[in-house]
Amino acid sequence: MSFASHDSATRQSQGEAITPEEIASSDAVADEATARYAMILGDDALMLSQRLSSWISRAPELEEDVALANIALDLLGHARFLLTYAGTAWGKTEDDLAYFRDEEEFRSCRLVEQENGDFGRTIARQLIFSTYQHQLYSRLVHSTDPTLAAIADKALKEVQYHQDHAAQWTLRLGLGTEESSRRIQDGLDSLWSYVEELFLDVDPIPALGDVAVLPSSLREDTLHRLREAIEAAGLTVPEMSGAYGSDRTGRFSEQRGYILAEMQVLARQHPGATW
């Protein structure tokens, strides 16, 4: 497996970035704990991708439609890598894991499952999650698991842009009109109780050592950067405690079932269908 990417000083190459197919066909097999970790990260990316793709044809402008779709596709790519790798532990494909797991088998956090709301709320969610994800992947590139490190390396470049996109919009909405500022502040307020869940050291992460990034180790830097971005936009960092039941099991998630119903219906009604 070659994960090298060669860009010259004068031209960006087509690139030799890692692909999910390479992971599937490689000898890399995740052990049980690593697979469960990859599934946590993959499920977050998959759920947010599914949510964001609902903006297609509904964004405020055509250009923003494309931007959100791009981000959704990047996240879908991350999910494909991570679920493909997770599946190697159990002889399952990415599709098995995405389409044929039930609600309580997913490990996504509630933040990414929240409804899009208006554009302000979506940008608030993007700001929180991409800031967290940027911190996460910039550490995961040092994972002692070479496949996870390669996936993080590929994803990091994309997440940098997601973070920038969200921060730019946060500035414009926050410093825009009274209405735009109210809307993104409402978005932040309605989502903030789901932030703490991102930093919980859920199983099996503490046992993975240098293979994984301990979520609690991301808390300080992530919150610091969020505070900077929010205050730069003249907005207020909400002060509220985290919502209860934050353990990624879905037992306390209202939204997950609805997302899965839409995402999985075709694959389940027509198993093996291709399009």
């Binding site: 087509q14 931007a67 730019q168």
Partner: peptide
């Protein structure tokens, strides 16, 4: 600033630009 980002999204999707 946003024009530059939109341009990146719309016109450099296939590694067209430096």
């Amino acid at each position: 600033t946003m024009a530059l980002r939109n341009a990146r999204d719309l016109y450099t999707r296939r590694n067209e630009g430096t």
